[in-house]
Design a protein around this nucleic acid. Structure first.
Lengths: 143, 143
DNA sequence: TTGTTTATGAAAATCACTTTCACTGACTGG
DNA sequence: CCAGTCAGTGAAAGTGATTTTCATAAACAA
């Protein structure tokens, strides 16, 4: 899986006429090894722990690049932090977010997706993407 | 409808021991007369056109108050602007957002809501709220 | 290896709020 | 009705999270 993503990124870099740099490789490494929902800050801190010379701006710019390359996606959970999640070929999922502890659980539901398409169509919209988040208490926090 | 909302707000004000001011009345007036999805900036500009002496901070604080009073709700469409929409008694709806022109259409779908609850339950979550936005092209922009 | 062009890091600038603070203006008790 | 009290207001300063700038460094082509 990591191999595939790395290939995807180096192809993107090449095809765009960009340069392959040590920093980008490092950041990709850390991104691939990370949780599925990292804020820029979180990834930056992880990277900096091993590579104190890599700056925040570079992490920020590189994450944007990952999104452009199609191996990451920006998400907002309304807490004022932009997060990036991993994108896997043809996969889409939504989120359950615990309002107390911040735990994020992913889920997929084809039936809902289908209904979404129907709703959109009935309003004449052609859907490109969607976002669905359910906020509440996770099992632990319910106690 | 406006009468009801105004009553709601004045009751809230009274019950909280807050004060009724000319500014709050003015801002409520403009909010009630507005589109259903206004950013603070947009409402501020509309208000300022008629009342140049009302400041941004007051609009900002008053909108928060409307949310607390239950007649407005904060929404985020990921464009970095906080918007406020009107809240009507017992109503919940989701949004279709045009990625080209920004048009926002509201919709309700009880079947999806039910499925959301089921999904949440199957993960042990107790849902408080949810957010669902479908992004794509509106009928006009499809042409 | 050099030249050209993109990338990087540190710092400054933005953006969209949020808070502060000195001054106003609502309401309350007389 | 009138002063005192305390919440409300506006302008400006402060915040937090990016986002951009700019001088320097590092790729990669020739």
């Amino acid at each position: 899986m990591k191999r595939v993503k790395k290939k995807l990124f180096s192809d993107f870099i090449a095809q765009k006429g960009l340069k392959s740099t040590r920093q980008r490789d490092t950041i990709l490494e850390f991104f691939l090894a990370s949780d599925r929902h990292m804020s820029i800050e979180e990834l930056y801190l992880k990277v900096r722990a091993k590579h104190p010379n890599i700056g925040y701006a570079t992490v920020y710019r590189t994450l944007k690049l990952f999104a452009e390359a199609g191996l990451a996606r920006e998400i907002q959970f309304g807490d004022g932090q932009t997060r990036y999640e991993h994108v896997n070929e043809g996969e889409h999922h939504d989120h359950l977010v615990c309002t107390r502890c911040g735990t994020i659980v992913e889920f997929e539901n084809p039936v809902i997706e289908k209904l979404q398409d129907e709703v959109a169509l009935s309003h004449g919209f052609l859907i490109e993407t969607h976002k669905m988040e359910l906020y509440g208490l996770c099992p632990k926090c319910r106690k």
